[in-house]
Design a protein around this nucleic acid. Structure first.
Length: 246
DNA sequence: AACTTGTCCAACCGCTATTCC
DNA sequence: GGGAATAGCGGTTGGACAAGT
């Protein structure tokens, strides 16, 4: 039996013991008291310490999605909706990453909202607009960068040798800054998700499989995926990394 | 009034990544 | 270094409820 099967079997066995289904107020209180005393984490010890017949997984989920005091209840506002749309356009189904940009909202909440509002109408007009907006911004940034590069070339042709060395150093520093920015973005993106970093942008192509033809052309990032093998952009030339990012 | 459809929400499942021993 | 335990993520399901037919 492989590792995954063993875990699954263990889960199933435990399933004979663990309670499932909706949480009762009493269970909630036990869990809240436990977190107040012990703090978050060590979820598997909750059942031992409190007598709760809930798996650690279930306890964590209940706390994160429902009991946490900093949760914002109520409907998603138009502003939040816009943020969700734009971040989804950038990051795809990285709900936890998106949720970090919306204080008080959970990944589950955002995921549910997305599925009900945007998943069915494919590709929904709203999504299309948001994505078009993001793409336009990205395009403009790219144009600016290329323009800057052209300016640099023209400038360097008019400079003395010493000045050219200085400009070259500047360019190198800029590239380093870009690399750091990319690494930062990748780390931030990877921090909350199962990994994948910047390249996870490929996930935004999920609509493709659902017949979202319009997105198929817009988000055809095969070259990006191919270059980094689905793991990360490391190893790519800086310019390719920048392009992959934008 | 009965049925259908859509929305919202909570919870579970399978899998992977990370941490611990 | 390797395996087990734990944490976290995204996908999916199912029930409650409201609105529409």
């Amino acid at each position: 039996m492989d590792k995954q099967s063993a875990v699954a079997a263990a889960d199933q066995g435990a399933g004979l013991f663990w309670r499932k289904g909706p949480w009762t107020p009493q269970e909630d209180k036990l869990l809240i008291d436990h977190v107040h005393l012990q703090g978050e984490g060590r979820w598997n010890s909750v059942s031992k310490l409190t007598g709760l017949r809930r798996s650690g997984k279930s306890c964590r989920l209940r706390w994160v999605n429902y009991l946490r005091p900093d949760l914002k209840r109520g409907k998603i506002t138009p502003e939040e909706e816009l943020i969700i749309l734009e971040l989804h356009a950038l990051w795809g189904n990285r709900w936890s990453t998106i949720a970090r940009s919306l204080p008080g909202r959970t990944d589950n909440e955002i995921k549910n909202y997305w599925r009900t509002h945007f998943k069915k109408s494919k590709p929904a007009k709203k999504v299309e607009k948001a994505r078009a907006r993001v793409l336009k911004q990205q395009h403009m940034l790219q144009q600016e960068m290329w323009q800057e590069e052209e300016d640099d070339v023209v400038r360097s042709m008019m400079l003395s040798q010493a000045e050219q060395v200085a400009v070259a150093q500047d360019v190198q520093q800029e590239l380093m800054a870009h690399m750091l920015m990319l690494q930062g973005a990748a780390a931030a993106a990877a921090a909350g998700s199962g990994g994948g970093g910047v390249c996870g942008v490929r996930e935004t192509a999920e609509e493709e499989e659902e017949g979202g033809g319009a997105w198929g052309s817009l988000w055809n990032l095969d070259d990006v995926e191919g270059a980094c093998g689905g793991s990360c952009c490391c190893g790519l030339p800086v310019r390719d990394q920048v392009l992959a990012f934008y």
